[in-house]
Amino acid sequence: MSAQFMPQFMQYLLSGLTVGAIYALVALGFSIIFNASHVINFAQGEFVMIGGMATVSLSAAEVPLGLAIPLAVAAVVLVGLALEKFAVEPARGASVITLIIITIGASIFLRGLATLVWDKQLHVLKAFSGDAPIAVAGATLLPQSLWVFGITLAIVLALSWFFGRTLLGKAMLATSHNRLAAQLVGINVRHVLLLSYGMSAALGAIAGILIAPISFTTYDVGVMLGLKGFAAAILGGLGSGVGAVVGGIVLGVAESMSAGYVSSAYKDAIALVITLAVLFFMPSGLFGKRGGERV
């Protein structure tokens, strides 16, 4: 037992980290849009799906991966911008819950569109660098997981640079803190909103492309990933970049540890119970702003 313990634990950890990194990317997408507009975009999962499906169909058309990926991301960004321009923007001033329903409508629309553009089959993307497992401390890891870790890390660093060091990033943050004040100091709030949808679409697409070689992709793959990403964003604290990443990792690792040590039938339920327990003690998530309600 004890001889087995470490490799077993490592395996659970690695598996949880891979899944968690994907949740983190989806959660970051939720957070960016939330920051700009206080809206939860329930079509976030569809960005993930379109990213994966577009890359699959481009590489099936013999487009090299190095070109297919940026093309697919660009396509998803266009979808994100269109969503903001044609569905969210016209409903400006509507209540938050109305906007949520609009994004749910958009997610159903995009899923329906995907079944027409593509099909309802499962598709697989070739792993970026082969399928030969790598041994790590008695556990095994697919090269694709390394890509997931590396790209997630790079994105997190790039985002923190963007929001911390660039004028545009700071403008976006200012808008999230106080929209009116941001407007008064000359920030074009509408552009910020558009940009946030574009960015979160790109993040979703990248998540979808990274995971496609591991868990395949299909027209409704975004439903579960979107739900998990939302849970991760809430667990970490909405609007917090660090929170989204930590939330995703915690959720992923909690799931795989529960599957390994407690019950694989109830692993998702256990992860949710942990999320709820955190919320009961920290009502704004792990890293969320503890804002007072405006009267």
Partner: peptide, 17 residues
């Protein structure tokens, strides 16, 4: 006797067990 959920992306934990 192990299980996995709908939409799960990785079953290495169950298989390791």
């Amino acid at each position: 006797d192990e299980n996995y959920g709908a939409g799960d992306t990785d079953m290495t934990a169950q298989l390791t067990k």
